[in-house]
């Protein structure tokens, strides 16, 4: 059992400052009316009580836009100038259980199969993940449906807010080393103090409206049955083809590679892309997904079928509920799961 420590909430800015002396610290900051993970500075408005950030921690591992290299052109001669991989230790503080699980999904995509993505890897190994239990999961949360425990978030270090204190427990060697480094600001605490809070969170998470979803039918053998299901015809109908769900999704990992003329050379960069955009699969001789129905279906098939088929049944959704909150036309993955999951299961029984 890992040792438990606590620090008064009032002393947290001291803690951030202490961490900031040696490495950058990112945490939920309210700026311009929105909660996002941002670099801490003394006047940043930190809000650990907010439920979810709009952007997810994936931004810190897979930035919206990242330069890969510069090609200097001299006539038709090309010189490739690579840049060093990211190499600064940093801490992400206050990551919720769902987002931690989402990083595991991203790790699978980017790191589990050869060749690994070295840009992602460089950032990932430099990061310490400090998670934070959700004291008040809300209606749009459905992490429980994917068996994610909001009361016991993973990560390198886990934390809980109980009363006027932030409790902390290292979860692995990396976390232990991190906690030891800042030990001076903490006082010892009893792990048992947290039992009540954990039970309360677990109960809350289980009682939310979307905590139980019919996910049983989403298995490899049903792939074609679900792909060909007639419900896609109306499920996609309201979709306006924007990328909101993709970009605010903690597990969406597709990217595009493009060029930008920076006058001093052509920068080749990669940036987030969305399978909801028609340009996504457009190539010189045509497009293999011509209508929004096909693009819409691809996104949800990938999350619910293709990803689990490739990674041992791990769903590509962690139930963070951002798409429920953010979709301009109130579509979301829960509507899809409910519509297809129930019908496919019923047909199987019939």
């Amino acid at each position: 059992m890992n040792k438990t420590y606590k620090i008064a909430l009032g002393n947290l800015s001291k803690l951030y400052g202490r961490i900031n002396e040696t490495q950058q610290i990112y945490l939920p900051v309210r700026r311009g009316g929105t909660l996002n993970f941002e670099k801490w500075h003394e006047s940043a408005v930190v809000d650990l009580h907010g439920l979810k950030t709009t952007n997810t921690p994936k931004d810190l591992f897979l930035p919206q836009s990242e330069d890969l290299y510069t090609a200097k052109m001299d006539g038709t001669n090309i010189e490739i100038i690579t840049k060093d991989f990211f190499d600064n230790a940093f801490v992400i503080f206050g990551v919720k259980a769902c987002d931690i699980e989402a990083i595991a999904v991203m790790d699978n995509i980017y790191l589990s199969k050869h060749p690994v993505d070295m840009y992602y890897e460089a950032r990932r190994k430099n990061a310490v993940l400090v998670s934070l239990a959700c004291n008040a999961p809300k209606n749009a949360c459905f992490c429980a449906a994917f068996n994610i425990d909001a009361a016991n978030p993973k990560g390198d270090v886990a934390t809980w807010i109980l009363g006027e204190y932030l409790y902390t427990q290292a979860q692995n060697g990396k976390g232990k080393a991190f906690v030891e480094d800042i030990m001076g600001l903490f006082e010892p605490a009893e792990a048992d103090d947290l039992l009540g809070l954990k039970a309360e969170i677990a109960e809350k998470a289980q009682s939310l409206p979307y905590s139980k979803l019919p996910l049983e039918s989403f298995t490899g053998e049903n792939m074609m049955k679900i792909f060909d299901h007639e419900n896609w015809d109306f499920l996609h109908r309201a979709c306006i083809g924007c990328g909101t769900c993709t970009y605010t999704c903690p597990t969406c990992s597709c990217y595009d590679i493009k060029d930008f003329d920076k006058c001093s050379g052509t920068t080749r960069f990669r940036c987030w892309d969305s399978c909801m955009y028609p340009e996504f699969t457009l190539m010189a001789h045509g497009n293999n997904r011509l209508t929004q129905k096909e693009r819409f279906r691809q996104r949800f098939m990938h999350k619910l079928m293709y990803h689990p088929m490739n990674y041992d049944g791990q769903f590509g959704c962690v139930g963070c509920g951002r798409c429920i909150n953010k979709c301009p036309v109130s579509l979301n993955i829960v509507k899809i799961i409910k519509s297809l999951g129930v019908e496919v299961a019923e047909n199987a029984n019939a």
């Binding site: 311009g32 919206q64 083809g241 924007c242 909101t244 970009y247 605010t248 987030w272 036309v329």
Partner: peptide, 16 residues
């Protein structure tokens, strides 16, 4: 600047 730097270019504004 503080507002527009939040933009993630999801095109929701354009498409809607």
């Amino acid at each position: 600047q503080s507002q527009l730097s939040k933009c993630i270019r999801c095109n929701a504004c354009r498409n809607t």
